[in-house]
Design a protein around this nucleic acid. Sequence first.
DNA 1: ATCGCACACGTTATAGCATAACGCAATTGA
DNA 2: TCAATTGCGTTATGCTATAACGTGTGCGAT
Lengths: 131, 131
Amino acid sequence: MATPQLTKNQTMVMDALSHSEGPLSAYTILDKLRDQGFRAPLQVYRALDKLLEYGLVHRLESLNAFVACTCPHEHEHDHGVTAFTICEGCGQVTEFHDIAIEQRLSALTRAQSFKTEKTTIEIRGHCQSCV
Amino acid sequence: MATPQLTKNQTMVMDALSHSEGPLSAYTILDKLRDQGFRAPLQVYRALDKLLEYGLVHRLESLNAFVACTCPHEHEHDHGVTAFTICEGCGQVTEFHDIAIEQRLSALTRAQSFKTEKTTIEIRGHCQSCV
DNA sequence: ATCGCACACGTTATAGCATAACGCAATTGA
DNA sequence: TCAATTGCGTTATGCTATAACGTGTGCGAT
């Protein structure tokens, strides 16, 4: 799926996420964008839906929050399974991809004839700096 | 951590989950237990917190819901990383454990000196019966 | 024995996350 | 030109989770 030109709202939400140190909740994004005319949660959620669809943003299920994708050069193609480490101390999120895990999961789901649509891998813990 | 005797509330919540076909949200559990005297969400959440701690129940982050653990014989010991397939069609959840994935994730986090506390793996898709 | 502590419980209120349902405006393409 | 699609704005609502308060009970230490 090629990424079309982003709309004004989508661009504002994308910028908010890109310039953030860590993940943001939809309501935090809303607060950041109130100055720029945002008034309602739906404005954020609608933009996020599209950004997720385009693969520019990831949703962190265990945080109910969103991060900009850190693979800017891979926006044109599906980059398979995405995994995250999430530091409970500093909030830092690191995105990574691992073909071995992807293949192993693929083998396991194939064994139960399960058709995978979306895979969530999130590792909560503490990063090197946060002991 | 040995599993202590469950309290009355914990037992009721556990039973609700055990007898359910699929995952239940906290509020769905509350509704099921109103007849038996439950009145408030916290009664459910407090019981769930303990059941999670004892490893009798798992939380599905991508559904905001809970399932009874399907490894009844392993309650005494930590059974490492737990993964789930979740069918969008029938709602069926299958729990599984894979040492290869666990080891691979362990190697990857060790490489970034990340100390893992909890790992979430949830695969959304469709089961064999639901095409 | 009784004091202090830990723990489960009950209740009310509130915070945080997400979507339904309506209507309007702009774009596109048959 | 008309219909279909898409994005947008607004109000209202629903679902998920926790804060803050107080009560009661069991139990070990002094």
